[in-house]
Design a protein around this nucleic acid. Sequence first.
DNA 1: ACCTGAACACCGTTCAAGT
DNA 2: ACCTGAACACCGTTCAAGT
Lengths: 203, 203
Amino acid sequence: MARRSDHSREEIREMALEAAERLIAEQGSKALSARKVATAIGYTVGTLYLVFENLDDLILQVNARTLDRLHARMLEELAPLDDPMERVLQLGHSYIGFANDHPHHWELVFEHRLPPGKQPPQWFRDKVRRMFALVERELKPLAGNRDSQAISRGAAALWSGVHGICILAIGGQLEVAGVDSVQSLTRSLMRNYLTGFRTNGSS
Amino acid sequence: MARRSDHSREEIREMALEAAERLIAEQGSKALSARKVATAIGYTVGTLYLVFENLDDLILQVNARTLDRLHARMLEELAPLDDPMERVLQLGHSYIGFANDHPHHWELVFEHRLPPGKQPPQWFRDKVRRMFALVERELKPLAGNRDSQAISRGAAALWSGVHGICILAIGGQLEVAGVDSVQSLTRSLMRNYLTGFRTNGSS
DNA sequence: ACCTGAACACCGTTCAAGT
DNA sequence: ACCTGAACACCGTTCAAGT
């Protein structure tokens, strides 16, 4: 058992988040519990409540780290590309790729619900917004003379579409639909949408 | 307390499902528990296990009823329309409308996860497939000379897109994105996608 | 000051025992 | 035969008590 002052609050926080991430990655979010996390880092469950407000708070912190990693991956895989269309398509592929590589973490970000009436804190909402802004930015060069509201809507539509594919794919509901490959579906969704976006707008 | 043979197995089943639906509708799926359902129908928790395999099974039955209602609503709202494009768009609006009217029930259908490795039973997958087939059928008149695989893919893309909008809207992540109205986003997604679908394909 | 350990009010699931 | 009630192994959260 850990004695007092073995670790700083910050160290305990980091240890707890890593333990939680391991549990989630290996067994899914249903296997996550305050008691398991505490045991995994050699502390009592009470100690977690000195560092986190409650379990929802801990999950929010885990989700923030997941969003950071997702954002970093999107930026990274975008970097080598020049063609505007290719760049937008790559955003979708990166998103799907991440969801596929880390399904449990990805699920938790979008399926975790705070108690009714509670909203995620602003710093968390900003991380979501940042990802959305990335789509908007890459969509702009394809948008011709469409105004910024149209671009926002286009980005939201694209993101929703890719997101929906991820969800249904993870839930196994797309095999039901007889679809061969998730990536080809993503490509089809984005390309067709963008064709319509450009056709119905700029000319 | 209920005495034995007060109700048939079928009656208990129906009472339990209704009680569960009420709990979910009013307080969300997190408030659902076997004990609460049992108490609500005047039986002991053990009794539920004579009628349902376990809590996952009870949830599956609730979800099946939700899918039936969603499907019925889509058919109903489709009936008065003639124009093929309007019909496809209506499917999206019905889907969003249902999710908006019954957010907790709708969420449970797509967020409930069976234990790792377990798949939903065939009869449940068929209910999902049936909804997908509806989209396929309505897409066909717009598909020109595209083959059935392209139509399947188109239906999957459309459904994914609308589904993603629902998820993000329910999670409150679309306000973050600065989108005015969910319905207009849906319309934009579907119209632009369909424009691309027809442009890139039939001609 | 830091952490524990026990308590409280819940869970899902099982099954011997009662009627 | 049908249902109960208690048990088991878990939960999240709190907080007096120990070091």
